[in-house]
Write a protein that binds this DNA or RNA. Structure first.
Lengths: 361, 361
DNA sequence: CTAGAATGCGTTAACGATCACGCGAAAACG
DNA sequence: CGTTTTCGCGTGATCGTTAACGCATTCTAG
């Protein structure tokens, strides 16, 4: 199960190599290589002998050695919002990418960042075109701007693309790395129900075109369908960035109270508006451990934050691309991040994570 | 920040190599190697030139190439309970180890399992001695038997040891990979409070000598200290495996009801005893998504399971050992697993995880 | 004063895989 | 029948690192 593989010389351990195959098939390593990569110039009879040996020895190539031999540097493009947007959320993702990069630098990986303004589709298009012009070997994409992201992916042709921190359904990407938004919505529903068994409940969605955010809300709604009770009001703001508009709407909301589920990181706005000087506490659940939300947790203005572990996401995304492009391994189309629940009592654990201690891979 | 490092020839990308250093220091690669590994036979002046070049070019060795060159197989011993114990919990850990192994087989890693009976210290000692006799290059240890584990670690001398799925505090191990038991206890406290704001609360600890379990309880207690209310009764069973004794005690418990926090995987026993045919539902929170607990979640006999993601833990543990022994990288003394919260509504997501989809690294 | 040891350093063969190159023999062509 | 093309295959360089080996010097000892 673990130690031995088929091997020619006894006494040596480990996976079979091209040399082992060559010996067994009575050919040279060059011939083995040509057969393995079907580069022609080999007789049918010889090729069959080689394939037989490959099967008998259960050969699988040493991808590291392959890579060492090719020694061809791969450059990946990263298309994501500017680091300073969303209260530094993206900076954490970048720190994960850089952590992976420092490990992968010796594996011939380099990256190039293409940032865009998260509230401006034109800015996205511009960065996307620069990226496309750069002829890179792979792309990491944060699809916060849904429509243009879809447009971008369709232009990618053969360049492998890993989507992280979001989702572009039915698009032809190599892999999607994110939290299951539906499941996180389910959990939020449960939390809301426990915090406030009576309800009613309110969801706040800002930028409702985003698939990710819609799924979170759907999960929340689904929980109360399963539970068989709970009235839910939905609250939508299509425009991103209109904080004044949001505040005005929130003031209206004050009149019809209920526990609130905010499907993105702007929960702190809702928390401050509803709980800052209110007599009765409104339970609030939001996303992403940005400083503003952490502060709200600390002071009790907010109850739960569902964290996406952006650092781990960045780390894993770059690795997924590496596995595919450099190692040519199969990459799962979907890699799930755990749902990370933060409240006042365990806040310190989470603020330290990713800096002091190593993130579990 | 990302692409270029110091490099001799322009046009080539990537980290500096020994050749680059040799060129700059006007010596051969052999000399560079001797300096880097302080194998002597180099004059002080030359050594200094080499170190200067190393610093200027910001050299760091390509660990993969190093490993390729040494090509020395490392065998790691794994000391853990028998796969079939604890309702197959350990089998999941093994699947994670095997997943890592299949990736690391080409990196000269092999493993050897040494199983023991989780309820029998003598069985542990026997397996431990076999392991020690085998002269391995590293050890993975699941310290479910606390005292003998500590004894074992002290005998290890120079063999690096990674502890997973538990903890042996103040012991000299390379790294400990686990969930933060205190934090998980905090979260359990919050959940218990939300499920049942009045209390009282009961903790059930089976095998109270286990540091891991004690910390979970301490976290739970701490939450209610922070919250400033909540009466907690503690319930201990020192002997592991005495299910009959446990059942009898649980029947006594029926008379003084309260929400229950079970600090290990035996929560399903408590759930069946208290909730199976009871008029009023007692909230129950336990650990580990073994089939029995999953069934209790499904039927509503239990409310929450805190999962430790054993598959991911196994995967990460072997990798940590690999990083240290083979790559000679620094390994963090503590690697945290996320706290994975399972309830009826998201149960299916968790049962599929680790089989259908890839575990995020 | 010279044999032998110790020092300082370069050369080179691995490790596993890739790929350009080239050689001989057979096949195709005039 | 002689020449070119194609086929089938082996050789060897390469990637970055390690480590054994060997060759000059210089130093020590008898």
């Amino acid at each position: 199960m673990s130690t031995t593989d088929g091997n020619e010389e006894m006494g040596r351990q480990g996976p079979a190599t091209v040399k082992d195959i060559a010996r067994r098939a009575l050919v040279s390593v060059g011939t083995v290589d040509r057969v393995l990569h079907s580069r022609g110039r080999v007789s049918a009879a010889t090729a069959e002998r080689v394939w037989d040996a490959v099967k008998q020895l259960n050969y699988s190539p040493n991808l590291v050695a392959r890579n060492l031999s090719r020694a061809q540097r791969q450059v990946f493009g990263i298309l994501m919002p500017a680091a300073e947007q969303d209260s530094g959320y993206w900076q954490i993702t970048i720190s994960g990418i850089e952590a992976a990069l420092s490990e992968l630098a010796h594996h011939y990986v380099a990256v190039e960042y293409f940032h865009f303004n998260r509230t401006d589709s034109d800015s996205f298009r511009k960065s996307a075109e620069q990226l496309l012009a750069a002829e890179l070997d792979g792309v990491l994409l944060a699809p916060t701007l849904y429509e243009v992201s879809r447009e971008f992916i369709s232009k990618l042709a053969n360049t492998p693309c890993v989507v992280f921190d979001g989702e572009v359904p039915n698009s032809n990407v190599l892999s999607t790395i994110n939290q299951d938004s539906f499941e996180s919505g389910l959990l939020a529903g449960k939390l809301a129900q426990m915090l406030d068994p009576e309800g009613p409940y309110v969801t706040v969605t800002i930028g409702s075109a985003d698939y990710h955010l819609r799924r979170r809300r759907e999960g929340f709604v689904r929980f109360f369908e399963l539970a068989g009770n709970g009235h839910i009001d939905h609250f939508e703001l299509d425009q991103i960035g209109g904080e004044a508009q949001l505040r005005a709407s929130l003031r209206r909301m004050r009149e019809q109270p209920g526990s609130v589920f905010v499907t993105n990181a702007l929960a702190h706005l809702v928390a401050r508006e509803l709980n800052d000087s209110a007599a009765v506490h409104t339970p609030i659940i939001g996303y992403d451990l940005i400083p503003e939300n952490a502060a709200c947790l600390r002071t009790g203005l907010m109850d739960f934050v569902i964290n996406q572990e952006p650092r781990r996401q960045g780390y894993n995304s770059l690795y997924a691309l590496y596995r595919h492009v450099v190692l040519r391994e199969a990459v799962e189309p979907r890699i799930r991040m755990p749902i990370d629940l933060v409240m006042r009592e365990n806040l310190d654990f989470h603020l330290n994570l990713g800096t002091r201690e190593r993130v579990a891979l």
